[in-house]
Amino acid sequence: MNNILVAKEVSKQFGSHIALNKVSLEIPKNSIYGLLGPNGAGKTTLIRIINQIIYPDQGSIYFDGKPLQAQHIAKIGYLPEERGLYKSMKVGEQALYLAQLKGLSKSDAKIRLKYWFDRLEIGDWWNKKIQELSKGMAQKIQFIVTVLHEPKLLIFDEPFSGFDPINANLIKDEILQLRDKGTTIIFSTHRMESVEELCEYIALVHQSEKILDGKLSDIKKAYKNNIYKVGLGVQSANGLLEDLKDKFEILSSEYLDGGSQLNFTVQLPSDDTGPFLSHLSGKANVNNFMETIPSANDIFIRTVQSK
């Protein structure tokens, strides 16, 4: 029961095109879960199935331990990648309408909208029409409408697109605060730096199949490959590098500071660093010694390309 959402072997086919092939996911409560994958991998199809916009051919989805049902719509908030608002409708009216569609009463919706409009400092937009707003402004409204009914599960598909860096930060902070309040967030994006920054868990979908999932830190551990960055202080080019090259697999190297600093990366055969470090002792001063951890970006590219 620690998962807000569980997908079991979900498959979906459009005509002859298989959009999802037996995808299973477990999304822990109160986490930020990155749903990653190249374009056309099937992420949007999966998200639409969770939102009950379309229905799976096979497999099942459980929300908070129960099979996904129509009433769960009120507990999910969805910010689609392809999003927009009625252009000729006024901001306040439109926000009220969308909130009521999510099951809020009109008076509740008004109170919460006022709170959010003040919080994001857009209170004076209430009577403006969407067509009078800039894209970033409209995105703010869209964000508010998505979170207004305080869903247990929020799904953001590229939430930062259309925002300038300041507003993107603002929204990022809001997302983190929502997480802290107990909301679970599914986060679909191509921007790996925000995955790195926000996501505790990730799943990687490629060619309609899930090829990787789990805790991001665990995945990184699994993907590290005993490459170390080493910085040595040396007297002069005394053949140390050649000696190291004989005994270890040196991937790259360079001398700095007129030959007094040698930086290199080395591939060790296992995570036992003892033999390497004892080999160095006495021959040079070890200024730094650091294991390289693969970035989410590296993992993404390596996994997708190896398929």
Partner: peptide, 10 residues
């Protein structure tokens, strides 16, 4: 206007 997906998720 692409509002459609927002609405049909409700």
């Amino acid at each position: 206007t692409r509002i459609i997906e927002v609405i049909i998720s409700s």
